[in-house]
Amino acid sequence: MSKIILITGASRGFGKIWAKALLERGDKVAATARNTEDLNDLVQAYGDAVLPIQLDVNNRDACFAVVNKVKQHFDRIDVLINNAGFGLFGAIEETSEAQARAQMETNFFGLLWVTQAIVPIMREQKGGHIIQVSSFLGLVSLPVLGLYNASKYAVNGLSETLATEVKSFGINVSLIEPNGFSTDWAGASAFQTEANEVYAPVKKAFFDAATPDSWGKPESTAKAVLALIDSENPPLHFLLGKVAYPWVKQVYAERLAEFEEWKEVSADAHGH
């Protein structure tokens, strides 16, 4: 039986790749974008199987209206892929208030609004799968991406909590946590802070550390995402790419060792 999938940020990158893969196998996709002209190729190729919708996820009312429109059009929504977001590159000191707020507004609050809109529908259906596109930078962190890291840590905290709240309604929650991939995320879709030269060495070290092999091929993710969607018992945390797992494993081992080193001082602080 074909599934009904709502994907935000489907105009390019992961969103468009996954939308095509789902449509190719016979699923139906409601695809959102700030500019629906970016979805014309999907409409031409797949006709009525795709529902293109204009959406700026920063607008909470619009998020609720779009989710309700998809429900009315297809009669149900089996899967939400909350994919809309962007990267902000720059040191934390360099980041303006407007940039910081914009990063959180889209990556965190936009995802929250769509999530809030869809939970009542999935609860009424007695089932569904909410897939939040986070990052392995919601588990570990890198310099020059402080606000992006923060937005994805927030997404992870929100979604881990959500999973415990909606499980009894038959709703699964998964966090897709990719390492770097060669999408527009670090290119045309990225934003930059105004550079302060004191951070030039940190930025140089950051960019020099990346090798061509560090970046995964976006098209290669489709098979894994289809497997996640089809799983009867999907994971809460789902890493994408070969860089993410060893990196997260190392950082978590170091974190546990640090906790261990300070555990007596920590326990003493309890007071009794």
Rank of each mutant, 00 (worst) to 15 (best):
K3D: 10
S168E: 13
A210N: 10
E232I: 00
F206M: 04
S151W: 13
P235N: 04
N107D: 13
A244Y: 01
I131Q: 08
G110M: 09
A62Q: 14
E261P: 00
W215F: 12
D61C: 06
M104V: 04
V66I: 14
A200Y: 08
A31F: 03
Q44H: 14
D268Y: 15
A49R: 14
E24S: 15
W262V: 08
S231P: 11
S159G: 11
L145F: 12
P212Q: 07
F191M: 08
S214G: 11
N83P: 04
P235I: 02
L239S: 08
L158G: 05
E197G: 07
L23D: 06
E177K: 01
N149A: 03
F89M: 08
A33R: 03
M104D: 02
V173K: 15
V155F: 04
V57H: 00
T164C: 04
A33N: 05
S220W: 06
K223F: 02
G128P: 08
E124R: 03
L55G: 00
E93Q: 02
G9F: 01
T36D: 13
I17N: 06
I171L: 09
S2R: 15
V243E: 09
S96W: 00
C63W: 01
V57P: 01
A98V: 10
A222E: 04
F14S: 02
T106F: 12
N68M: 08
K249C: 04
K126V: 02
N58C: 14
P234K: 00
I92F: 12
Q72I: 15
N196C: 11
I81H: 05
A30R: 07
N83G: 06
D268M: 13
I7G: 06
Y199K: 09
L139E: 11
A30D: 02
Y148T: 06
D61R: 07
L228P: 00
L51D: 01
K69S: 08
N107V: 10
S266F: 09
D213T: 15
D27T: 07
V67R: 05
V225I: 15
K126N: 01
L137R: 13
G180N: 14
I53M: 14
